[in-house]
Design a protein around this nucleic acid. Structure first.
Lengths: 238, 238
DNA sequence: TCCTAGTTACGTACAGCGTACGTAGTGCGC
DNA sequence: GCGCACTACGTACGCTGTACGTAACTAGGA
């Protein structure tokens, strides 16, 4: 057997087949799909090499013929859900198009709640990631700023989408992993926070908390953040 | 022994001492400091219950008297480094003050490179976190917008700082964990990316890449992002 | 004052993880 | 048609978080 990962390597640069030997039983897409299925059903922690192998019906170590490290499996997963991004025809209104892209990313994350946890560690510029960036650049064609500024816009916007949606999901998902309900958890946290506020050590924070009435509309907060980012790049508003 | 974590709980709401029984050998701060020391020296993966116990010179399971779950240990760590935030006297220039806060957060993260990896999972509103938010609100006193908008500004700014700095750190840290150098890794990735671009499938991306000359100044990119966020909240620019 | 109940301390043990390594079988390229 | 690169995968190792049980200790109530 060839030495495994003695040298850096990008999984996408590695050909799927090399020609010699028995035909591989699975494609990379098969493996990614199996991992995604498990993550959707049982969360990211359910994605173990053994579980993925079981889902595919093969031995655990066989996976290592396709994926040199588990990290690369994550990369396959991110690429797989990247295919859910619709590459639509740009409308000519870059703001509307970018908002649409962002909302779509958010929707994908809500469909696959493990994505935000994976995002910070993925560097591979997978095919579907490249496709998505290219699509964003197409949407930004009407925006008259240097290309470098456009990529900064894309990065900032995607970062915000990931952060916001990821935080929302993480808060919600905590309940799934813990042996108590989200309501119980929230009640305990709020009781603690109330106690802290009652100490009077945080007057401005207290004011901010008591000022707001009713529950926070996360979707509205999210959309406001997006609009602010777009504003910050809009030459017509400067 | 009392049943462990049968009900949700906030580590900060739990008293350090309960009065009965032998005097605890450590404070929460001792434990947090030990964990931080390990994480600084060996990375977050070096922070195992056994390692922390060894650093403190006690048995592994003794830690569970102080910290019901490992997750809570993380919370202690985040709070510990939160004390490094300087609560300075607001200058009256909210933009300058918030830039200073952001740069300080970035500096803390570069001192403790494991922080960004931990941030998304921490929800506890630890004492130092509350203190920091309160400080930010003090800096934002001159800004004439509703309190809710101020907290949105704080959240957005901190999110961007974490995302950007975290990405930079993660890219740099990959080399530490892998058996090859950062240069080798980068060369391989660039070679792959060059190959992708050569396919002609991503014309706009290609243009953006070739347009830029020389290496990217990450610090400048970071600062531009901050300024844009601040612009987006500045009533004087609307 | 003594007793006891609530704590702390921590050794042992278990299930599960990623994956190194070795071996057996397969089929393409020379 | 031979050889070798490749696939397949069982076994095993070191590591993880932590459940559980036991021993030592001390503050509060009698």
């Amino acid at each position: 057997m060839a030495d495994r990962a003695a040298v850096p390597e990008v999984i996408w640069a590695r050909p799927e087949r090399t020609g010699r030997g028995p035909k591989p039983a699975f494609t990379r897409a098969d493996i990614a799909a199996a991992a995604v299925r498990i993550a959707d059903a049982s969360g990211l922690d359910g994605v173990t090499m053994r579980q993925v192998a079981a889902e595919l019906g093969c031995g655990t170590m066989s996976l290592y013929n396709y994926v040199p490290r588990k990290e690369d499996l994550y990369e396959l997963m991110i690429d797989a859900i990247g295919s859910e991004h619709e590459v639509f025809e740009p409308s000519g209104d870059w703001r509307a198009d970018m908002l649409r892209n962002a909302e779509e990313t958010r929707a994908i994350m809500y469909r696959h709640t493990w994505v935000p946890r994976l995002m910070p560690g993925v560097f591979g510029f997978s095919p579907n990631t490249l496709r998505y960036v290219e699509h964003c650049l197409a949407c930004l064609e009407p925006l008259d700023v240097p290309a470098g500024t456009k990529t900064e816009l894309i990065a900032l916007l995607n970062g915000v989408v990931t952060t916001y949606t990821g935080n929302e999901i993480a808060t919600a998902e905590r309940a799934r992993a813990m042996p108590w309900s989200a309501e119980e958890e929230n009640a305990v946290r709020m009781a603690y926070l109330g106690g802290q506020i009652a100490t009077g050590a945080y007057p401005r924070l207290t004011a901010a908390f008591t000022e707001q009435s009713g529950p926070v509309d996360l979707e509205a907060v999210f959309r406001r953040a997006l609009v602010r980012i777009l504003d910050a790049f809009d030459p017509d508003l400067r």
